[in-house]
Design a protein around this nucleic acid. Sequence first.
DNA 1: GTCTATACCACGATAGAC
DNA 2: GTCTATCGTGGTATAGAC
Lengths: 204, 204
Amino acid sequence: MVRLSFREQVLRVREDAIVASVNRLLAEKGFDLMTVDEVAADVGIAKASLYKHFPSKEALAAAAMVRLLEQARNVVDSQQAETAFGRLEAVTRWALQLQLAGEMPSLPSQNSTLRAELMASKPYLDLLMEVSDRLGEWIVQAQADGDIDPALPPEAALYTIFARACDPVPAYLKAGGRYSDEQIVGWVLATCMNGLRPRRAPAA
Amino acid sequence: MVRLSFREQVLRVREDAIVASVNRLLAEKGFDLMTVDEVAADVGIAKASLYKHFPSKEALAAAAMVRLLEQARNVVDSQQAETAFGRLEAVTRWALQLQLAGEMPSLPSQNSTLRAELMASKPYLDLLMEVSDRLGEWIVQAQADGDIDPALPPEAALYTIFARACDPVPAYLKAGGRYSDEQIVGWVLATCMNGLRPRRAPAA
DNA sequence: GTCTATACCACGATAGAC
DNA sequence: GTCTATCGTGGTATAGAC
């Protein structure tokens, strides 16, 4: 029993290492340009061994997305800001920071075989639903609080926040090299919440 | 002389047809998933013939981007709104409508060979510069007018507007099927300009 | 489960006849 | 310049020994 558990733990650790590599490579090159050979080389095992753990390249990407959503759920669950708007802002900030750190895996939204695999993955869908539901509740609350435009359909606000995860603006600003990560996060967060327009003091 | 000109016109028309096909396929599948065989089939010529007109797949994509930037320059040049902010809004609206119409070519920002080819294309760079300069002037003017947050670096505002061209939010809202294109454009434009927050009346 | 070696195939690009 | 037919590369996935 102990040996079996130990073996399982070793397997688990190795698979974690694989998914971490996939996550990094997905952030760096994207799904299409990431090759399975690269992943195997990065982990330090043979490609055939990789296929013993994950049956396809798509499954690798799906595992990375599940890992990301688990992190997102943890971040969501640990929010303690008083207002719903404040919690939404904090989660968006986390996503932007993750992206600037080069740890946000990015998948092409056009690849249909990849989408099919994701939509067939129950863990992925469950987590996505869980995170979406939680954020959706906050959005409705923030609308009731007068912090989010009530004319906006909640799903539009939800997509707008999700989209910050693959926003190209932070990378472009970072490529310019003139600004710190904190400045970039601040500006992108501000344009997400306040738009391009100048911020006015809230009505009393 | 007349026959030569006629031949050239035929060539020109054919190349326009090729670029139009490329544009549509780039919008539909993206660069990586678009195959040269598809392009040839869509145009109705053999792949070898395609390569007589354009030396590589990257050159095809570059031609599509030049076509897009020419359209963008024309749209920019024809703006007549009184305020700079109004002109920026109109151009952004055009980009969103083009995207919803399935005519916005999308290139992966990670593919380095493609980026290299684009950065080596003088027509592309010249047009990009021209459009960027014009929008940049408007942004600075809008900041002076108090319509855009003066704390925002102009390039951050420029990227934010450019990024609407590849914003995934319109496509997601459209996929839901519950909203008209006009509604979607309105909401995305509103979140771009005003953010998620409710719009307040401008100070007098 | 790990490895080496390889099957298999999609795709970009070309050869060569007309 | 157009075609048919083909090459070469690089990629996913697998066979089979250990």
